[in-house]
Deep mutational scan, measured.
Amino acid sequence: NQASVVANQLIPISTALTLVMMRSEVVTPVGIPAEDIPRLVSMTVNRAVPLGTTLMPDMVKGYA
């Protein structure tokens, strides 16, 4: 089972991601792979991401 990136807090729309905002967790459905966390830092989300939500590729500008 692959770990995915999960929001560690509410991430408001257009917020630049930082390490403290994300954690890795094995979830269903599978989202962005946890090993991509370093790549996600400073990318922005294009929607509000509630606490505990799995980050999907279409939620992060420039990721997909």
Rank of each mutant, 00 (worst) to 15 (best):
N1F: 10
N1A: 15
N1P: 14
N1M: 15
Q2E: 12
Q2S: 12
Q2T: 15
A3D: 05
A3T: 08
S4G: 04
S4C: 05
V5F: 03
V5I: 10
V6S: 01
A7Y: 03
A7L: 03
A7M: 04
A7W: 03
A7S: 14
N8Q: 09
N8D: 10
N8K: 08
N8F: 04
Q9D: 07
L10G: 11
I11L: 06
I11K: 00
I11D: 00
P12T: 08
I13F: 11
I13K: 11
I13P: 11
S14K: 15
T15D: 02
T15A: 15
T15Y: 07
A16E: 13
A16G: 08
L17E: 00
T18W: 03
T18G: 04
T18R: 08
T18A: 10
T18H: 05
V20A: 15
V20Y: 11
V20G: 12
M21H: 09
M21F: 03
M22Q: 00
M22T: 00
M22A: 00
R23E: 05
R23M: 05
R23L: 05
S24D: 07
S24M: 12
S24V: 10
S24C: 06
S24H: 11
S24Y: 06
E25K: 14
E25F: 06
E25L: 12
E25A: 15
V26Y: 12
V27D: 01
T28Y: 13
T28D: 15
T28R: 12
T28S: 15
P29F: 04
P29D: 04
P29R: 05
P29W: 04
V30S: 14
V30I: 12
V30A: 15
G31K: 02
G31E: 02
G31L: 02
I32L: 05
I32G: 01
I32A: 01
P33L: 09
A34S: 11
A34K: 07
A34V: 09
E35W: 12
E35K: 13
E35H: 13
D36I: 07
D36S: 09
D36R: 09
I37P: 00
I37F: 02
I37L: 13
P38A: 13
P38V: 13
R39W: 09
R39G: 08
R39Q: 10
R39M: 13
L40G: 00
L40I: 11
L40P: 00
V41P: 01
V41A: 04
V41C: 05
V41Y: 04
V41E: 06
S42K: 11
M43G: 03
M43S: 05
M43I: 03
M43H: 09
M43K: 12
T44L: 11
V45Y: 01
V45I: 07
V45K: 00
V45W: 02
N46C: 05
N46P: 02
N46M: 13
R47N: 08
R47E: 10
R47M: 12
R47T: 15
A48G: 11
A48T: 15
A48W: 12
V49T: 04
V49Y: 02
V49H: 02
P50R: 08
P50A: 12
P50H: 09
P50L: 09
L51A: 15
L51R: 15
L51T: 14
G52S: 06
G52N: 13
T53E: 09
T53P: 00
T53I: 10
T53Q: 13
T53F: 11
T53C: 07
T54K: 04
T54G: 01
T54D: 00
T54A: 05
L55T: 01
M56W: 05
M56D: 04
P57E: 07
P57R: 09
D58Y: 15
D58I: 08
D58G: 12
M59N: 06
V60I: 14
V60Q: 00
K61T: 12
K61G: 08
K61M: 14
Y63R: 03
Y63N: 04
A64T: 15
A64R: 04
